[in-house]
Design a protein around this nucleic acid. Structure first.
Lengths: 337, 337
DNA sequence: GCGCCTCACTTAAACGTTTTCGTAATTTAG
DNA sequence: CTAAATTACGAAAACGTTTAAGTGAGGCGC
């Protein structure tokens, strides 16, 4: 391993001068700097991040909290896309990213311990159980943190426009003539709360009746649950003409349920998803859904995090909204009655 | 930041003793060790990986080469699943994982430079252009490397059973009565080569005619290309009765082409995918495909890599085969003629 | 000629560990 | 009872950086 010391010996200068030359400090003569840089290249020198980190207390490495939710983890297209955006933006700004886990050197540890050990400059919280005590401990520490699709008091967040999204879907169905719209929502989370609130508001606003039966607890990315809830909805005396699902993937279960119930889709019942993942746009008929700008969410999160790391005092704490757009497919048709 | 030094002062012992106590060395009296550990916990001590790394030349951190292929990156379900397996296995063995990129501290660098800078103990090469000069440079360095679905001379690899996979698909179609089977394959890669070779071998073996027209160059994960090639295949005078696609996702384009050509699927033409990703099993009709065990590939890669790191001399260089299985759907039916 | 800058470089300490070697005290062997 | 071995600890160097402080040489104004 070639170090500053070796370069110094070869060049006949001190280690300090080599360090300054390579870091572009001003108090090194131009020709000396060039000579040192040339030699460093020749020797194949590469700095040692550990030594630098030890000295400067900066790692240029971001931790990412991304935990396997219900066995899906990285396979979840929406979150994977967010992470991809985060990764790309971080790389373009000179930061690496490392996953944070609860295991450290074969023993279990808290997220915070993991972060302290690795010396992350900041943490992006993308996909995790936000109520987990270990997450709270991390958030309450003095490590810069940015969350995606969740707000913590005193920390910046990047949020998808859940309110606008659901409102757009309801409005779209309404304009297509639907007056009986059901909503199968996901588990109780920050996101679900916003969407549900928006659903109710929009229904009130449009003077739609929303019997309790029309609002069902489903699960994100679980087609089977959507299947069951859909069958149940279809058996109601006054059944809905349109159903909104937690997301595009779990929606598939709904479509299967409709067909298994002997109904035609979309002629007999209209359907809408959420997310706008690839599958929704290659299905036949194409699905009407609200596409979240997942990549932008990730990029914005990384950008905000890095900004707050590099300008600790001037950087303001804020919630950034990233808007998506309605993708119009052919899954919603004018109801018969 | 609480360091060994502080603990030493509080406990009235030397730094060396504290280090040894916390690392479980034998030359520390039991009661001293307990006392030191207790104090360390009380003070909220957490080791500093940078210092440890500097001293020991071990990071307990693995680099992962996972580059955005054609704009998909992490969104590619197969690779995402491999990565998830890699991540889980690494974590369970006490290793973190960090993405390797070509940008380092805002300047561009080679993969190898990145690895040297971060001091990775080893590298998993999962999704990348294997012919890239920077990849070769990394592989030829003295950093332990394990590849997924590609073999490099002198390095361990974890391989999906591409030969068995394609053979199983061809055989399945044959047994269903198909004698004219076309194969739209992906770009020229190690994997494609194996599959093509297996396709030809199997066809010969079964005495199937495979005119050049039946073997088409397509692209992985590109439904549009599959669409075009499928239309072209359907216009042949003696058209195939069954088509195998590069993967389940690009296959969707094929299905659309069949329908747009006025044919019925699967009645008029049978179709098979590859990978066994989620979408293939929720579609109607379900797709007959060969499911790769992506999670196992990732886990095996991490396990092998860590083994070769921890036992540099006893660990043997090998190619590990991970087998998948045929998923029988309803996309292949007995041909009319 | 004197004081004062500036320039270009060096010295040396420090970051938090690990580990080798040394040593004093205690135990064991003969 | 002496010598050797063992036990439990400490001193110090080292890993590769960064950076504050110091130094000597040369140039400048007056």
């Amino acid at each position: 391993m070639v170090s500053l010391k070796m370069i110094a010996e070869v060049c006949g200068v001190s280690v300090a001068t080599v360090s300054k030359a390579l870091n572009g400090h001003k108090d090194v003569k131009d020709e000396t700097r060039e000579m040192i840089r040339r030699k460093a290249d020749e020797l194949g020198y590469m700095a040692n991040s550990a030594a630098r980190m030890l000295k400067t207390n900066r790692s240029h490495n971001l931790g990412v909290l991304f935990e396997d939710q219900g066995g899906r983890g990285l396979t979840h297209e929406f979150f994977a896309t967010v992470l991809e955006g985060f990764k790309v933006e971080a790389a373009s700004r000179g930061y690496d990213i490392t996953f944070i886990s609860k295991s450290l050197l074969n023993r279990s540890s808290s997220y915070l311990q993991h972060c302290k050990y690795r010396g992350f400059d900041g943490v992006g919280i993308i996909c995790v159980k936000f109520r987990d005590a270990d997450v709270l401990e991390l958030v309450e520490s003095d490590i810069p943190v940015v969350t995606v699709d969740h707000e913590f008091e005193g920390h910046s967040a990047v949020l998808s426009d859940n309110i606008t999204g659901i409102a757009a879907l309801v409005k779209y169905a309404y304009e297509k003539g639907h007056r009986k719209i059901a909503y199968i929502h996901g588990e109780e989370t920050y996101v679900t709360e916003k969407r549900l609130q928006s659903f109710r508001t929009m229904c009130n606003c449009l003077e739609l009746l929303t019997p309790n039966d029309y609002i069902r607890q489903g699960m994100y990315y679980e087609p089977d649950v959507s299947y069951r809830e859909t069958l149940s909805l279809l058996q109601l005396e006054d059944r809905p003409t349109c159903i909104i699902y937690p997301d595009d993937f779990s929606m598939i279960g709904g479509i299967n349920a409709v067909r298994d119930a002997g109904l035609r889709f979309p002629e007999d019942i209209s359907i809408m998803g959420y997310d706008g993942i690839d599958i929704s746009q290659v299905m036949n008929p194409r699905i009407t859904t609200y596409q979240q700008n997942a990549g932008a969410l990730g990029r914005a999160a990384a950008a905000k995090l890095i900004e707050s790391i590099e300008n600790p005092e001037s950087s303001i704490c804020e919630s950034i909204n990233v808007s998506g757009r309605l993708l119009e497919g052919a899954s919603v048709v004018r109801p018969c009655i």
